[in-house]
Design a protein around this nucleic acid. Structure first.
Length: 679
DNA sequence: GTCATGTATCAA
DNA sequence: TGATACATGACC
């Protein structure tokens, strides 16, 4: 031990003393608090929003704080003359800093709320999304609640329940997956759930299997209804208190209590929405995400990380297992299979055929014409018949999208959405009297020709009257008609004949499933002006269709739409994997994610142009734009894309750009990597 | 972001 | 010469 007394012991290179008034002040002017002898340096992540200050700063640890200033503790420190919040990430014996260290101002709490794993994770997520760690920390660590913190931690009890792999039996590699989890191994799987299967039960068993190996599990689901379903499944198997729920809207006390139960290791099975993705689960052995294509997983706060990416980063970093599950398959999940990062867990075709039968009926003008005479102007004859027959045995689901999506132009002959000849972006009408433009690169679509059928006419899909529950009710007098949509989601459906009209994602699940599921207005979902329109449509249809009873019990799915559309064909064949494979090839040739890594830069054009100029982008970069931002007069947007392999380089270049800009006090430019949508 | 410092500019 | 404005760079 060679420590000296007083506050100057950390002046490692005093020769570099600066002329700043603060440093020049005589030492007697400040009270040099006695420092602790053991590891007197605390490395602190300070909560400042500036990109160029996004790194740890060293502080001296006063003797009075020696015990409390543990790694992970919240502290208050003096930074640039003001008190700011921070987290201790490390205690060290010495500092690299050449000046004098400020002492920690206060240890807010000795509770180590930022574990080393999560501290590292926030760094990786910030780097991946070209954001700041302090922004990511805000997502990762909930606000403190002092009263809650005073409650003593509950004892951690090991989970003795044996996993039941029978639900995974129908899947090739299913029971093997559970066995490996229970055996302490770390398989990584893309799981395509069978229609009719209770995904919550299967994920519950996966979590229990992981627990059987003495490890923790973290499962993210899109929304509250899914949380409730998974919560119920876990409670049914383990009883209350063996798992914990983390969501954003729990209220400060509840949220912090749940968080503490996890961070203190009292509970090691964690479920929740995207807010749970950063949960500091002890000995994390499994991360799982259900229906990863759901756009609720896109974090709306900077730096806009996606739950799936956060979980995969964690699996990679901890060497744990991962399950990416859904009825449909996202192109990102397909990419995990292509690269060999994960293996497929799916049911054989015969099993699928036993579960679900999907047929399609056209909604051409001819069919409508004929159906007017059949008594229903709104439903094709076959749909009408299907509903009538199915109502004899149980509830029928009609899924119909809400109107009001931003629609893109389509070929007026074959209805294929029109893409830009230059960059494959969606075409849309900017103003009357001007040719349509690409929404990404603003190239006017002059002399456009449909790639599918060679047609040369463009049409804007016009929203017709929405089918209303009333109209349906008139067609089926005496049958109760229930609606479920956006703000008014129906919780339950009686297990008897009824018609449920629901918007995608708001479909209630009857105890024994629907006797029929009808997917209406499918062209509307497909016409959305989004590069994911078809993938998203199939996901929504599959989720609704999966609620149908098995074929053997008369369950039937009918799609009303264009039979040649790829997404509809994939649904009819129930082949989400094939669709994802095909989709990924198309994205590849169009230089779209996930084959490419895309970033958007948004802000006033006067700020964007120098930013683009200063961006030290990797080889092979394409810069598209600027394009005016819909609904914002001031703002414009550039799209920057690189081959997938150059993604980390692009992130680094954007981080560097943000650093330089913040150091030079230039106005903020919003950077979003892998944006949920490019509209 | 704040703060302190340096330089430019101008009225007195 | 001092007051003021603005740019710059450090921030532990």
């Amino acid at each position: 031990m060679t420590e000296h007394e007083g506050g100057d012991q950390l002046e490692l290179i005093p020769a570099l003393a600066r002329s700043r008034a603060r440093a020049a002040r005589p030492p007697s002017a400040r009270k040099p608090a006695a420092l602790t002898e053991d590891h007197p340096v605390a490395r602190v992540l300070v909560d400042v929003p500036l990109a160029h200050l996004d790194r740890p700063f060293d502080y001296a640890v006063p003797a009075t704080m020696a015990e409390a200033a543990v790694p992970g503790a919240r502290v208050k420190v003096r930074f640039a003359g003001q008190d700011v919040d921070g987290f201790v990430i490390e205690r060290a014996a010495t500092s690299e800093h050449t000046g004098q260290l400020q002492p920690l101002r206060r240890v807010v709490s000795a509770e180590p709320v930022l574990s080393p794993e999560i501290a590292a994770l926030t760094g990786e997520v910030a780097a991946r999304y070209a954001g700041t760690r302090s922004d990511v920390l805000r997502l990762a660590v909930p606000a403190r609640h002092a009263t809650t913190e005073r409650q003593p931690p509950a004892a951690a009890e090991p989970i003795q329940t044996e996993p039941d792999a029978s639900g995974w039996q129908p899947y090739a590699g299913g029971t093997g997956l559970l066995d490996r989890l229970a055996g302490g191994e770390s398989p990584r799987a893309v799981w395509t759930a069978l229609p009719g299967d209770d995904w919550a039960v299967l994920l519950t068993e996966a979590a229990i299997a992981t627990a059987a190996s003495g490890r923790g599990a973290l499962v993210c689901v899109p929304d509250h209804r899914d949380v409730a379903r998974l919560d119920a499944a876990l409670t049914a198997r383990l009883g209350a208190g063996r798992h914990v729920v983390l969501t954003a809207d729990q209220g400060p006390a509840n949220r912090y209590a749940s968080f503490l139960a996890v961070s203190r290791g009292s509970v090691r099975i964690v479920i929740g929405t995207r807010a749970a993705a950063f949960a500091p689960v002890h000995d994390l052995g499994l991360v799982a995400i259900w229906d990863d294509g759901d756009d609720l997983y896109a974090e709306p706060r900077a730096p806009y990380p996606h739950t799936r990416e956060v979980l995969l980063i964690r699996a990679q970093a901890t060497g744990g297992a991962a399950i990416v599950g859904g009825h449909a398959r996202s192109v990102e999940a397909e990419y995990l299979l292509r690269t060999g990062w994960a293996v497929e867990v799916a049911a054989p075709r015969d099993t699928i055929r036993e579960r679900v039968a999907v047929s399609v009926t056209g909604d051409s003008d001819f069919a409508f014409e004929r159906d007017v005479r059949a008594g229903s102007a709104r439903l094709p004859r076959e749909a009408f018949d299907t509903i009538r027959v199915a109502l004899e045995t149980g509830p029928v689901l009609l899924q119909t999208p809400r109107s009001g999506y931003l629609t893109r132009l389509a070929c007026d002959r074959c209805r294929t959405p029109a893409t830009c000849a230059n960059c494959q972006g969606p075409l849309r009408v900017v103003s009357a009297g001007r040719p349509p433009e690409c929404a990404w690169c603003a190239t006017p679509a002059i002399g456009w020709k449909c790639a599918q059928c060679g047609g040369q006419g463009l049409r804007a899909p016009v929203l017709g009257d929405r089918r209303t529950a009333e109209e349906i009710g008139r067609a089926f007098p005496g049958v109760p008609v229930l609606t479920s949509s956006g703000d008014k989601v129906l919780a339950e459906v009686p297990d008897k004949p009824a018609i449920v009209v629901a918007t995608p994602g708001a479909e209630p699940l009857p105890a024994t499933g629907y006797s029929a599921v009808l997917l209406l207005d499918t062209w509307l979902l497909l016409a959305r002006s989004d590069l994911r329109a078809a993938e998203e449509a199939l996901r929504r249809w599959a989720n609704a269709a999966a609620m149908v009873r098995p074929v053997s019990e008369g369950g039937r799915v009918l799609v009303v739409g264009e039979p040649t559309a790829a997404a509809i064909q994939a649904l009819v064949r129930w082949d989400p994997a094939g669709f994802a494979r095909r989709e990924i090839l198309e994205r590849q040739s169009a230089h779209l994610p996930p084959a490419s890594r895309v970033a958007t830069m948004t802000g006033p054009l006067a700020d964007l142009e120098p930013a683009i100029e200063a961006l030290d982008a990797p080889e092979g970069v394409e810069i598209l734009g600027p394009v005016p931002v819909y609904g914002d007069e001031e703002a414009a947007r550039f799209v920057v894309r690189v081959p997938r392999a150059a993604g980390p380089e692009l992130s680094a270049a954007l981080s560097e750009l943000q650093s330089q800009r913040s150091a030079r006090k230039l106005p903020h430019v919003r950077v979003e990597i892998d944006p949920a949508s490019l509209d």
